[in-house]
């Protein structure tokens, strides 16, 4: 068993654990909405669909700092949503790890939706019709046929989203700031270390850890996706 305490300094370990927590919640909170958006975009035509599609993809092409700024405008203490949250629920997102998770979730969302949507589009709709002739309510059809058959895409979306969240920098630093222990995730810690003399060795360790996590996530996703595909095709 590798003892992380002996490999990393407390500051590095803190950044690593915070990053994992932020990315986990960014993906977990975004996933239900990602599945819903992916399903709606894959299956329905409605006026303004292109606009909705464009808005969902905006974080992919907008500078992250702009996204962070917009989040500040909306969720800041004086923002429309931020002031309401503070008043009704006594919740403040700005300068908190939850705020960092929100920034990451927004940046990761388009990647998640894209993978899930493609996967739902690939599901054979004739199977859904067959399920309906067997008496299954549309919700049951979704949870027992559509969703299980699009799991490889959902896994891909989760991993892409997680990796994007781990690497999130611009929106996080703008919206949640760079507070040690609260919002200083791996990339922010790495950036901070590069600003101080003698921080190179520590920065290198964080860079290697980031790379390892990303590679591990990709391998895991590939393994899970392959296993699910084989299960669907009936070879396992």
């Amino acid at each position: 068993m590798i003892n992380l305490n002996s490999l990393l300094s407390p500051v590095e370990l803190e950044a690593l654990l915070l990053s994992i927590r932020v990315s986990f919640w960014a993906v977990a909170a975004g996933l239900p909405f990602g599945i819903l958006c992916g399903f709606v975009l894959a299956r329905y035509s409605f006026p303004g669909k292109m606009l909705v599609d464009g808005l969902l993809h905006l974080p992919l092409v907008t500078p992250p700092v702009v996204v962070g700024y917009l989040l500040l405008v909306l969720f800041g203490r004086n923002g429309i949503i931020g002031s309401w949250l503070a008043e009704v629920f006594n919740v403040t997102l700005v300068f908190t790890w939850q705020g960092a998770a929100l920034a990451s979730a927004v940046m990761a969302f388009p990647l998640m939706v894209r993978a899930i949507r493609l996967s739902i589009e690939a599901v054979d709709r004739r199977l859904e019709a067959a399920a309906a002739t067997l008496g299954a309510h549309p919700l049951r059809v979704f949870f027992t046929i559509t969703l299980p058959l699009s799991i490889p895409g959902v896994i891909a979306g989760v991993v892409l989203g997680f990796a994007r969240s781990l690497g999130e920098f611009g929106a996080t630093i703008t919206f949640a700031s760079n507070i040690p222990g609260a919002t200083r995730t791996l990339p922010l810690a790495l950036y901070t270390l590069l600003q101080v003399p003698g921080g190179e060795a520590s920065a290198m360790r964080l860079a290697v850890i980031s790379l390892l996590i990303s590679i591990l996530a990709l391998v895991l996703a590939e393994f899970l996706s392959l296993r699910q595909k084989r299960r669907i095709e009936g070879h396992a």
Partner: peptide, 20 residues
């Protein structure tokens, strides 16, 4: 009446078994 409430069985040309 919605398809799922009709109680009409349907055997399709291609079977359409659920692969998972």
């Amino acid at each position: 009446v919605a398809m799922h409430k009709r109680r009409i069985g349907y055997v399709f040309q291609d079977g359409r078994l659920f692969p998972h």
